[in-house]
Design a binder for these strands. Sequence first.
DNA 1: ATCGGGGGAGAAATCGTTTTCTTCAAAATC
DNA 2: GATTTTGAAGAAAACGATTTCTCCCCCGAT
Lengths: 338, 338
Amino acid sequence: MTRPTIKDVAERAGVSNATVSRVLNNNPHVDDNLRSRVMEAVSTLGYQPNRDARRLRAQSSNVIGLIISDIQNPYFISVIGGVEDAAYARQMNVILCNSNEDLSKQAMYLRVMEAERVAGLIIVPCHCNQADDILQLSKTGIPIILLDRVLVSGNMDAVLVDNVRGAQEAVTHLIELGHRRIALIGGPAYVQTGRDRNQGYRNALMAAGLPIDEHLIRSGDFKMESGYRLTSDLVTNGDPPDAIFVANNLMTLGTLRALRELRIRVPEDIALVGFDDMPWSGDLYSPLTAVSQPTYELGQEAVHLLLRRLADPEAPYRTMTLQTRLVVRESCGAQLRN
Amino acid sequence: MTRPTIKDVAERAGVSNATVSRVLNNNPHVDDNLRSRVMEAVSTLGYQPNRDARRLRAQSSNVIGLIISDIQNPYFISVIGGVEDAAYARQMNVILCNSNEDLSKQAMYLRVMEAERVAGLIIVPCHCNQADDILQLSKTGIPIILLDRVLVSGNMDAVLVDNVRGAQEAVTHLIELGHRRIALIGGPAYVQTGRDRNQGYRNALMAAGLPIDEHLIRSGDFKMESGYRLTSDLVTNGDPPDAIFVANNLMTLGTLRALRELRIRVPEDIALVGFDDMPWSGDLYSPLTAVSQPTYELGQEAVHLLLRRLADPEAPYRTMTLQTRLVVRESCGAQLRN
DNA sequence: ATCGGGGGAGAAATCGTTTTCTTCAAAATC
DNA sequence: GATTTTGAAGAAAACGATTTCTCCCCCGAT
């Protein structure tokens, strides 16, 4: 009924528990005869070491904390998968938390992570300025890897996506297809990815010698509703653009819904390109041209950075930047002109 | 640098560590004077109890294991959210694992759960027959809650959705709209939800006095590719149906893609209704009529069942069945006829 | 033949809590 | 006034592992 302990194994094998421990941890200085006796006792009893006791003694855990900012966003599912696979391949477990873009919830989970004495933490911070608690946790010695979003202050490992370049490529694509009045449904300024994508948009226009019309620029909060609202506003007030670049997936869904309700055809009336590809992007009302992010790899690389830091706490901080890829479908009208 | 222990707190407050422990656990038999001294020491040192030590001593953890069968499926995201919220509201943490519909991976995670001595386990089993390892883990005394899928043998708590009724309602809807030759892209027979939804399809036809044409019935594996393949096959061989009921969300996406590629219009040429609603179902190529499941509640109820069993291990096993809701959009042609 | 070195294995300390046991003093009972 | 009861608080045991310490034995070198 009750689970066997190392003592039970030792008793059954007729050795001390120190010897059992040595066998389990592959200590070479143990007699083959005893070793096999221990192994047998372990398997007949179905013994598994108590991880709490192990962690208590070792003062280190094999648990990785993962705090993401919005579990409702399909973008992060793939990230989670990458983290999980990489972690479990190294015998590490993952505790997943969802801050839901809420600073106070994030603060709570940071405390949980500290109390749990996680080996390391991978976090998508929900605010790039107000991150004192993250910096503070970092000071206590817990390795922290930033994922997807960088902080304005503080030196840390990070794995990011080249958002500026990705956005620029997307908007340049629109320009090359002949669109001139290109609107932006941008991300929030308090998140680095939002800023970067907005910057990419401006870069593309400037590189093409096109004017930047502030009337065509709106700023949302990465949620669907804001995409819907800003798009409705954009196309009904004044003269509408002939193309829209939307800075993330959920807002793009909002945009699509708004356009459909207003009976504006995509891409015939307005072309559309979004950031973040999704598995079903091609099955949407208008198959979506989108900037695809290497989400799974993002999660994996975060774990790799973490393991590297655990192995060498003094290593210089590294920021790893992965590249995006533009997936061309029909929503920009590419097919119409080619 | 190093984290403070209960000893440091005791020393600073000038009391024994037993007293500190008593204060922290709200033991009433402690002098108010000492109590406040301890509280102050705790807050100035920023002390947080070591959870490993606590768990080791208490022989119980506050960690809930959650094994889901496919993290890529948007269906489960909401389930995860429900579990998380309910768990954290009770100060419990969640370890998330993804079996990816793979029996050997599931077996591995079950071992992890046992070694972690989780307080309880919520699991979406990936096979309803081959579940010996789940039953075995259950025997060791760890409370297990089945989510979404029931096992053919073994008595356990479970929280399910009324799949038969949901499917029946969906197909009846098609019948009421005048459709007669209704095809089924069904789920796999080795999963209870697959079986139930297939049964609901048959029930609806029988109740309406319609013949069951085995030529119109295909069986997939709940993945997108099988929806795509089976649909292509269905509509190109012999005479196509005038409606299709698809047994889950990913296969529905496959069906939609196949129909679009074959230039078959939905709902004009073929009507479509799927199981599992998604946040963007209304934004698809054809806005999808779908059976919506209370996924978030499913996760929450699983936690509630678990807490109930932890409180009373001898309570009779309970199966909780939640109801679905048919969300009518355009893919069935309802709008066309009303 | 004696000493030094090293390997094998048990005894015991340790990790940070909680909880039982013990002690002591003050209050309550007769 | 002597004895039992109560309660506060420290000392110590316990949880289950790992690791250091210690001991013993055997082998090789002087």
